[in-house]
Design a protein around this nucleic acid. Structure first.
Lengths: 171, 171
DNA sequence: GTTTATGCAAACGATTTGCAGTGGT
DNA sequence: ACCACTGCAAATCGTTTGCATAAAC
């Protein structure tokens, strides 16, 4: 689902973001630019804290508050989306170069498997129509065991990432 | 989706819970009993804090910590399930007397619409099978506008409950 | 120049934990 | 008696906010 973004795409995103900011009287600061570029280059999923550390590691000192204030803008501008909260943390992922998808999370090893959302979107459309509801977005996550952990047997929990909240159980 | 539980069912749940506790050397205390009964009688969805206040209101003084320590036991014993976190809070609901269902949440007024999960379960089964994944549970929430708020038009947000995290967007 | 951003540190709110005392079994 | 449980208050942890300074526009 993820593919490395080329410079062209990154520049485009930067322009879009600048435009997004300008339209609402916000400023395209050095920090915002730095964040955007770092994120687009690193790609993939990330948490705010993770981003902060990764930047520190590269010798880039952006304040934690700035990150927390910028991420929502990037989401709102359509560059990122907040994917899901495994427990209480936020989880962001880049939208560019991706196709709508949802996630399966292995409860044993934490592996995340992305899968195409088109069928869910279809179902979502039908369900909401029946209820007179106008869908804007959804969240669909499946918890369970990935094929590897399944094979390893119930006795070998790789690390035991636990969300400790039961979702809709198996039938 | 919810129906008032009769005394018979409540007693049954109490027995189950007592059994669940005994099997792992835990104790069936007065507080745990109180919590279980209060929850089953009040039925519906609730948040921990809400439960605390509701008990205080009835003159029942259980410590907040006790609630937070008991709820996971009730979830694990199969009596409750943690439905979803609208933002950062926990949300619990009684499993007994209910059918598997998921939720639509109105972003304008906060209304929660429950809907039958059977189709999602079917789809879930197919998707996980394809990935060699063994599903244990899922979480499916749809955000959008309920029919009422839709009718009221985009200019009349009832209270503006905002999750401020974009999920899988509309296609 | 005016307005929005930044960084820091303090504030938050939900949840958790340490601890001394209480109470099932 | 033993070990789990309770209540309280202090501690966490991710996230938000107030404020003085710095940087866009």
């Amino acid at each position: 689902m993820t593919m490395r973004l080329d410079e062209r795409t990154i520049v485009k995103a930067e322009d879009d973001f600048r435009e997004y900011l300008r339209q609402r009287g916000l400023k395209f600061t050095a920090e915002r630019r730095t964040l955007l570029r770092s994120i687009l280059q690193t790609q993939d999923h990330f948490e705010p804290e993770e981003l902060l550390l990764s930047l520190r590691h590269k010798g880039i000192g952006v304040g934690k508050a700035t990150i927390y204030r910028t991420l929502p803008l990037l989401v709102d501008s359509g560059i990122l989306r907040r994917a899901f909260l495994g427990r209480s943390r936020s989880y962001y992922e880049v939208c560019l170069g991706t196709v709508p998808h949802d996630h399966m999370v292995c409860t044993a090893c934490g592996t995340i498997i992305e899968f195409d959302s088109s069928e869910i979107l279809q179902l979502r459309q039908r369900l909401t129509a029946e209820a007179g509801f106008q869908a804007e977005s959804h969240r669909f996550q499946i918890a369970g065991l990935c094929s590897r952990c399944r094979a390893a047997g119930p006795s070998t929990p790789c690390q035991g990432r636990d969300d400790s909240g039961r979702w809709s159980p198996s039938p």
